[in-house]
Design a protein around this nucleic acid. Sequence first.
DNA 1: CTCGTGACTAAGCGCTTGCTTAGCATGCTG
DNA 2: CAGCATGCTAAGCAAGCGCTTAGTCACGAG
Lengths: 210, 210
Amino acid sequence: MTSTPIAELWPTPPGVADARPEAAFRLLRAAVESFAERGFHATTTRDIATGAGMSPAALYIHYPSKAALLAEISRAGHAATLALVRDAVAGGGDPVARMRRLVEEFTAWHARARTVGRVVNYELHALPADAYTVVAALRLDIEREVSALIEEGVSAGAFQVAEVRTAARAVTSLGIDVSRWYTDRSSETPEELGRRYGELVLRMLGAQVG
Amino acid sequence: MTSTPIAELWPTPPGVADARPEAAFRLLRAAVESFAERGFHATTTRDIATGAGMSPAALYIHYPSKAALLAEISRAGHAATLALVRDAVAGGGDPVARMRRLVEEFTAWHARARTVGRVVNYELHALPADAYTVVAALRLDIEREVSALIEEGVSAGAFQVAEVRTAARAVTSLGIDVSRWYTDRSSETPEELGRRYGELVLRMLGAQVG
DNA sequence: CTCGTGACTAAGCGCTTGCTTAGCATGCTG
DNA sequence: CAGCATGCTAAGCAAGCGCTTAGTCACGAG
């Protein structure tokens, strides 16, 4: 990999004058680390500024508030997750192949980008109301994509599930919770974990797999 | 039910002079609600005291600090979870029946006592070091109980899993994450959810179920 | 009755918080 | 060159924090 998971969330189009100054990016990165480790409320603006190598006041040149940093992290993280899910659901292959790919990538993302994942999934309550509205819509879209794929698999006779909503909850739940417990010291790589979770989920959905 | 999930965590032996005064219990209850809703750091001692119907200073007659309240909640919550897991693992029946019961009760508990569950699983980082040591040992015990039951099922030919540790992680992960998303407005009761998750987990573990 | 004790409150202390203000160096524009 | 915008820092403000202090009240013992 040539860039960190965090850097991938705020890509700069090549050949274009850098729209997001490097200092603002450093602030985002420091905020993600702090929010993930200590939580939004236990993180001070001094923590973030120091982590980005600036004085506390410099933060407010790039973002209007501490909450605006959280909102941007949460929005970008949810957008990336939704894009990942859409790619897998709309990709090629039968429902079983697409579900396997979805779980593999969803799981690996929550392991690799676990700091962003923690902020995205466990700091929702700290979002300002307007930012929460945006993010809640993205979360609903993610759930709908997963449900749609399960339903397609059921219709095709590939999956056997009693309740699609419950099954969809279980699938996303497994992946999300990875960001809570995964650490650098975990024995599996994100990709290994993704493959193993892919197997487990397919069996859970009643798919016939070797 | 004659008592709330929270009340069950701090039972008073019948016929014995109440060891934990009612005021201390009200503080615990208010602290659980606040910590679960807003997180430890966003909760003020004034929130807790007001929720228990007292002035801020009264809190310090019953507990030496805000962190001591968190420690007591986390300890009792983990102890209750471990007891629940031990009962299921050591109970009667074959590994399939015991695993079904474990998942049903583990899941239902995380739905019913979701406020305690949130504090237990998502506020670990706010624990003082000595309290964390105690709680980490309980968490390890829980993981070992689940792994032991899976291993027993594999030996008996009832389960088919590639990696016991990964499977154990998935089982506990599914249950823990319930406390994140379950609400009063959820369409399933804790018991219904438990039964459905029990089915899903048994299939995930490769058990032959109807 | 006096005294001691336990549960509590009103007031507030020292500190940290998110954020602001004033000012300074740099570099681009005309 | 002047004029000005940009990105930053040093200093600090008002508000809110965890927790303490001093004192009140009800009540049981002697």
